[in-house]
Design a protein around this nucleic acid. Structure first.
Length: 268
DNA sequence: CGGGGCTCCTGTGCGC
DNA sequence: TGCGCACAGGAGCCCC
């Protein structure tokens, strides 16, 4: 699923390829995808506009437009942003003067597109917790976020208002790397374990970023290419297979309604 | 206030 | 072989 590394990959690619391209027109093929603006109004706003700046917060992709307003994308489970030929199967298509298109696709219909005048007004982003890889973030801050909580650690890591950008894949991977059971209660995690977890999260996210994310389902980058980190996943999707460290059969449980794979031997 | 459970949705893959 | 159903999950919401 698109998490921080996947969204950041797309952000960098849009920044590299699409800044200042003039928008000729916009086609909207879904009534659900635009969350707070009508198709007609949206089309009017977009014609002759262009992308000025591409920002990411958590799993949100934010595009600052020439006129100072913002597009906010959320890919949810199966959203795709692909720059290339016109693709009529898309929910929203931005047609540029250079003849190319940005196709916003989504098989499942969860993806969202917002249009806002100011980021201050956009609550979902205001509520987000800090970014693990932010320069301002630190182990001390991480520890203070988890140490008082009675929640199981894995669902806690996925709470966007606690830490932004982590989803079902990278929470499982980081917990495996840190040797911590996903079902451990957060406030029972020791200082040293928390340190391991913090380092594991950074390691997993940085590594996934290098590989342009994980294409376990429909995720592709701006070029329509798969992320190569899926081959390096150690627990996600490997239920029943041998642990890569100790050969123990990996187990799958349900935590807060989400499938969770772990090694019952390596993770304590 | 926190946590569990339900909901949105549709393609996929498995079992009968 | 083919059909039908469970399952996949980000995040908001409701309820206890």
């Amino acid at each position: 699923m698109p998490e921080m590394p996947e969204v950041e990959t797309i952000r960098r690619q849009i920044e590299e390829k699409m800044i200042n391209l003039k928008i000729k027109s916009v086609e909207v093929n879904s009534v659900r995808i635009l969350k707070n603006i009508s198709s007609q109004e949206f089309q009017k706003e977009m014609v002759n506009n262009s992308f000025k700046e591409v920002i990411r917060r958590g799993k949100y992709l934010i595009i600052k437009l020439k006129n100072g307003k913002y597009l906010i994308f959320h890919l949810k489970l199966t959203g795709q942003l692909i720059y290339g030929e016109f693709d009529s199967d898309s929910k929203v298509i931005f047609l540029f003067e250079n003849g190319k298109c940005l196709n916003f696709k989504d098989k499942r219909g969860f993806a969202e597109l917002w249009f806002v005048s100011s980021l201050q007004d956009f609550l979902p982003i205001k509520k987000l917790g800090p970014e693990i890889l932010d320069k301002e973030f630190s182990f001390e801050k991480f520890y203070s976020l988890i140490s008082g909580k009675k929640t199981k650690i894995k669902p806690l890591l996925m709470k966007q208002d606690v830490i932004a950008g982590i989803g079902n894949i990278y929470s499982q991977e980081a917990l495996f790397l840190a040797g911590i059971l996903p079902s451990r209660i957060a406030n029972q995690i020791t200082f040293d374990e928390a340190k391991k977890l913090y380092n594991s999260l950074k390691e997993v996210l940085l590594s996934a970023l290098q590989y342009h994310g994980s294409s376990v389902d429909t995720y592709v980058d701006l070029n329509g290419e798969k992320g190569k980190y899926a081959d390096l996943l150690k627990v996600y999707g490997r239920e029943g297979q041998p642990c890569l460290k100790c050969k123990t059969k990996l187990k799958k449980i349900d935590l807060a309604g989400r499938g969770t794979v772990f090694c019952p031997h390596c993770q304590k």
